[in-house]
Simulated assay, not measured.
Amino acid sequence: MRLRIFLEPQQGATYEDQLAVAKATEELGFDALFRSDHYLHMGDGVSGLPGPTDAWITLAGLARETSRIRLGTLMTAATFRYPGPLAIAVAQVDRMSGGRVEFGFGAGWFEEEHAVYGIPFPTTARERFDRYEEQLDIITGLWSTPVGGTFRYEGKYYRLAEGPALPEPEQGPRPPVLIGGTGPRRTPRLAATFADEYNVPFSSAADTGAAFDRTREAAASVGRTDPIVYSAAQVLCVGRDEAEIARRAARIGREVDELRLNGLAGTPAEVVDKIGRFAELGAERMYLQLLDMADLEQLALVASEVVPQLD
């Protein structure tokens, strides 16, 4: 089981805040740092100050200021960018990092952030997923085109004239693609077709297992033989005793009992036990959502008292 740190900077974080977490993530031996790709804060009582930071610009900076950890998004929204420029940006960050980028990619869902920043938002889920699937075709197609070759695409929503598929990513044949969510039909099929990793966010162990099974069934139905990595994301709230757990829960505006039910919360022993339940379902990676980015001591606690107990 590999542990990865996951941030939500739209809730209020500077680049420097994220850099501090990235350096701690690397120094403490965690596998990766991922961040959300959102432009607007969520939830009551959250200001979002000092304002959003762009995911791929941030990751480009972190790529040059770290040396080991993997870097990626959970999840970049297909609605935010055209597929050609997005393929270029991710490939460039992959080269800047020496081949440490992983591309988490979703259909997009948060309509309000599109409205406040003037981003067109398809009003039906069908259109969003149709566009998303075309973008997956284009981005993976561009990355898979050999140097000297050209790429052309004719879809319902996107058309690319024949042209050079450059720059090439550092990783070959492409950076790993992550697809996530719990949709019952299209998500499993798209994961089976395109994904190197399938992620289930913020769900119970039972619901996560059911989602894993749907994707396994979809992979079998399309005749896929390449393995898929299965992973889960959970909010983190761990403490040495009840007082420390309660203090950390209060700082992120959550109740301890609710976090114990819906996240990785409790003592290190409790967190190890719950991670074990996800491992039994086939999860190979856990994304620990660190909502209080100033709490680097919590990461040190996980590194010293949780990680040594994991296989």
Rank of each mutant, 00 (worst) to 15 (best):
R2L: 14
L3P: 00
R4F: 07
R4S: 14
F6Q: 04
L7E: 03
E8N: 14
Q10Y: 08
Q11F: 07
L19Y: 05
A20Q: 10
V21Q: 04
A22P: 00
A22Y: 00
K23W: 02
T25D: 06
L28A: 05
L28W: 06
G29Q: 02
A32T: 00
L33C: 00
S36W: 08
H41V: 12
G43I: 09
D44A: 15
P50Q: 10
G51D: 13
W56M: 07
I57L: 15
L59D: 01
A60L: 10
A63C: 05
E65H: 14
T66W: 08
I69D: 05
R70T: 12
G72N: 01
T73R: 09
M75Q: 05
T76F: 01
A77R: 04
T79I: 11
F80A: 03
R81G: 04
R81E: 10
P83D: 05
L86K: 06
L86H: 07
I88T: 15
I88A: 10
I88S: 12
I88K: 09
A89G: 04
V93I: 11
M96A: 13
E102D: 14
G104Q: 02
G104K: 00
G106Y: 06
G108V: 02
G118Q: 11
I119M: 13
F121C: 08
F121H: 13
A125G: 14
R126K: 14
R126P: 07
Y132K: 15
E134Q: 08
L136A: 07
I138A: 07
I138H: 03
I139V: 14
L142N: 00
G148P: 06
G149L: 13
T150C: 11
F151A: 10
R152L: 09
R152S: 09
E154T: 15
K156L: 07
L160S: 03
L160F: 06
P164T: 09
A165P: 02
P167T: 05
E168N: 04
I179W: 00
T182P: 06
G183Y: 02
G183H: 03
T187H: 03
P188M: 11
L190F: 13
L190A: 13
T193L: 07
T193W: 04
A195P: 01
D196M: 14
V200G: 01
V200M: 06
F202S: 08
F202M: 14
A206W: 15
T208K: 07
T208W: 06
A211E: 12
D213A: 15
D213N: 13
D213M: 15
R214D: 02
R216G: 05
A219R: 10
R224T: 10
D226Y: 08
S231Q: 02
A232E: 08
A233H: 09
V235W: 06
R240W: 08
R240Y: 11
I245E: 15
R248W: 09
R248S: 02
A249I: 04
A250V: 13
G253V: 10
V256D: 10
E258H: 13
E258M: 15
R260Q: 14
L261Q: 15
G263I: 00
G263V: 01
A265Q: 07
T267R: 02
A269Q: 12
A283K: 03
M286W: 01
Y287F: 13
Y287A: 02
Q289P: 01
D292E: 09
D292N: 13
A294N: 12
D295M: 01
L296R: 11
A303H: 04
A303V: 05
A303F: 08
S304G: 12
V306C: 03
P308I: 11
P308T: 06
L310S: 03
